[in-house]
Simulated assay, not measured.
Amino acid sequence: MPERGLPTPSAAIATAARVLASAGVASPRVDAELLAAHVLGIPRTRLLTAPRLATEQAAEFDRLVGLRATRVPLQHLTGEAPFFGFELAVGPGVFIPRFETELLVEWALRHPGRTVVDLCSGSGAIAIAVARARPDADVYAVEASAQALDWLRRNATRLAPSVRVVHGDVTDPTVLSDVDGSADLVLCNPPYVPEDAPVDVEVRDHDPHDAVFGGRDGMDLMPGIARRAAGLLRPGGVLAIEHDDTQGETLPALLREAGFTDVADHRDLAGRPRFTTARLPA
């Protein structure tokens, strides 16, 4: 039985939210609720009816709140990140997927195609989302980082075993050379943040640097990705690349120069340039 002196979830969350707010956490109340739900092993929607925390639960909650106050990412503390209706396992060594990338997936799923390649796959978010929505598709996930690859394999095994995980440089013409000229869609969320751009503490200190930053203007990998996508795609196949909101003109211009047609830029829900799409001429 929980001890009478231990806090109710509501009281513990209120105290935690104040601690997190004073630490500069952007969403202190939400984070406190998610940590409490994690510790209690219940959905966040059941917190109002949950009983008092047990001694061990209260201690664990306080420990996690303390870590979150030092700006350790919430997802590293819970061990998972929501994406497209499922939960990805994440932690040190892999980029935490963002909600904005779901827009690219939604666009991709509006375009038919049996062979799909996800470059710079990271945790596998894009590849897994496509594979779950299209069980008959051949989906490839390419990742260079050995650390990220461990998370990718873990997520693919659990969530979409049909995804074919490939360890390799996404700009290397020998990677997936057996797929050359046959991919219907190539999708990519590469490192694209300009090197001197301000970022949250969580990103600066915990996301892998090479998964976030793409050189001085954030565009270092883009020419190589465009070349590799052109090699992978069949005539008439389509490409989608997520980008920084400063690249809404430069990336489309690069793809046009690389020979792609039907180039278009797309905005996120906040109205910021978010990803560019293009077609390989038939």
Rank of each mutant, 00 (worst) to 15 (best):
M1F: 10
E3T: 09
P9W: 01
P9G: 09
A12T: 03
I13V: 15
V19G: 01
L20F: 06
S22K: 15
S22N: 13
A23S: 15
G24I: 13
S27M: 12
P28Y: 01
D31A: 01
D31M: 00
L34V: 14
L34Q: 04
L40Y: 13
L40M: 15
I42M: 07
I42H: 04
P43C: 10
P43E: 11
R44G: 11
T49P: 00
L53D: 01
L53W: 06
A54W: 14
A58T: 07
L64K: 00
V65G: 02
R68F: 11
Q75A: 15
Q75M: 10
Q75D: 14
H76N: 10
E80T: 15
A81L: 01
F83T: 05
G85Q: 02
F99H: 08
F99E: 06
E100N: 07
T101H: 07
W107Q: 04
C120A: 12
C120F: 10
G122K: 08
I126P: 08
I126N: 05
A131L: 11
A131H: 04
R134K: 11
A137K: 08
V139W: 01
V139K: 05
A141C: 10
V142L: 13
S145N: 07
Q147Y: 04
A148V: 07
L149Y: 04
L149C: 05
D150Q: 14
W151L: 03
W151C: 05
N155Q: 01
R158F: 08
R158C: 09
L159F: 08
L159I: 11
L159K: 06
P161M: 11
V163E: 02
V163L: 09
R164T: 14
R164M: 08
V165A: 12
V165N: 02
H167K: 11
T171K: 03
T171P: 00
T171F: 00
D172H: 11
L176F: 09
V179G: 02
S182L: 13
A183N: 10
L185Q: 07
V186S: 01
C188P: 00
P190W: 08
Y192W: 14
P194F: 14
V201Q: 05
D207A: 07
P208F: 10
D210S: 14
V212Y: 09
R216Y: 06
M219E: 00
I225L: 15
A226R: 03
R227P: 00
A230Y: 12
L232E: 01
L233G: 06
G237H: 07
V238D: 00
L239M: 13
I241D: 04
D244T: 09
D245P: 05
T246K: 09
E249L: 12
A253T: 08
A253V: 02
G259P: 11
T261N: 00
D265I: 09
A270I: 09
A270T: 10
A270F: 13
A270G: 13
R272F: 14
T276N: 00
T276S: 12
A278Q: 03
